[in-house]
Computed example of a mutant assay.
Amino acid sequence: MGVLSAGLFWERRDVPGCEHVRLDAQNGLYARGTVLAAEPVEFACHYEIQTDPSWATVRLDVRSEGAGWARGVRLELAAGRWRVTTSEQGDLDAALVDAGHARAGLPGIEDPDLLYGVFDVDLSGSPLTNTLPIRRRALLTGEVGVSHRVSVAWVLVPSLEVVQADQIYTPLGENRVRFASETFAADLTVDDDGFVTDYPGLARMITLGRGSS
């Protein structure tokens, strides 16, 4: 795809960092973005997401990199099953241990069949990926207070380990959606297109001439 007409930018609240994405949302979503963060180690994460017209994810391609290491993971949905391919260079574990953190899991997932029935991806630290179930389930026009459980492929950044996770989204009305997992909950504020403008404790959107989506 050529030049993308819409852009979004978030400033991180939890750690020094930001996210910038260019996208087209006319017929599902196609997006290319970059996440920059200083924790748990300094890294850049570049991603590409494509959904079908119903906003179900069909492909996610991610690469994270820092001083002395780089990792990649690609998730592709084909015939109802996820195919996962990975790459790794250098030593992320050494960088994490030097920074006082635990070692990372391996990129990808050992058994891709654990992702059977997954229609959404969740890139940790990225407000963009919260939009996927919001749009796919049409939560902004759904009944207020009715919860929707979704199964996601949760991609941990910067390790790019992939985990199947269950999440709950509940429309609250007035462009607010409650997001919850087993150990966490936050009330997200979104715009009329379902993109997160405020994620308490994580990020807030900065409007810099978004363009048309």
Score class of each variant (00 low, 15 high):
D111F: 13
W69G: 07
E182R: 14
W82D: 04
A78E: 14
V146C: 05
E88K: 13
Y169T: 07
E161N: 11
L23A: 08
V157C: 05
Q164Y: 06
V121H: 00
P107E: 10
Y47G: 02
P158T: 09
E48S: 09
P158I: 08
L139D: 02
E88R: 15
V73G: 05
L156M: 13
R12G: 04
W10Q: 01
G209M: 09
S87D: 12
L172G: 04
V144S: 07
G2S: 03
E182Q: 14
S151K: 15
A102I: 05
R83V: 10
P112H: 08
V196K: 02
A95F: 04
V118Y: 03
V3C: 05
L115W: 04
G33N: 08
G7D: 05
F43K: 01
V163P: 00
L188F: 09
G211A: 06
R136W: 06
G90H: 10
A70T: 13
E11F: 00
G72C: 14
R176Y: 03
V15G: 09
M1I: 10
T141A: 14
A104M: 08
I134E: 01
L139V: 09
A99K: 10
R204W: 12
A25T: 00
A70C: 14
D111N: 14
D187W: 02
P53S: 11
G90M: 10
S54N: 15
V62Q: 04
S147T: 15
P127F: 03
E174R: 15
P133S: 14
W10S: 00
V146R: 12
I206P: 00
L123M: 02
E39P: 06
S126A: 14
E48R: 02
Y47F: 15
E143A: 15
T51C: 07
R63K: 15
G68E: 11
T141I: 11
A31H: 00
V150R: 02
W10T: 00
L106Y: 09
V73A: 12
V97M: 08
S159H: 07
T51A: 07
A153K: 06
D93T: 12
Y116A: 15
R176Q: 12
L23S: 04
L139P: 03
G108A: 09
R83Y: 02
D113C: 09
T197H: 07
S87F: 06
D98I: 09
G108N: 08
E42R: 13
R83N: 10
C45V: 10
P107K: 10
F179C: 11
R32P: 00
V155S: 06
G108D: 06
D98P: 02
R149F: 07
G142W: 02
E174I: 06
G201H: 07
L4H: 01
R32M: 01
T170L: 09
F184S: 12
R149N: 10
N130K: 08
R59Q: 12
A180L: 11
G100P: 03
L60W: 01
D166W: 13
Y116V: 15
L139N: 03
G68W: 10
V190L: 05
C45L: 13
L75Y: 01
V121N: 00
A70P: 04
A94I: 09
H148M: 11
L4D: 00
V163D: 07
V146P: 01
D52T: 08
V58Q: 14
Y199K: 04
V150P: 01
L23G: 01
L60V: 09
E110K: 10
I206F: 03
L75V: 03
Y30M: 03
V157R: 02
A44E: 14
S212M: 05
S151M: 14
T131H: 11
L156R: 13
C18Q: 13
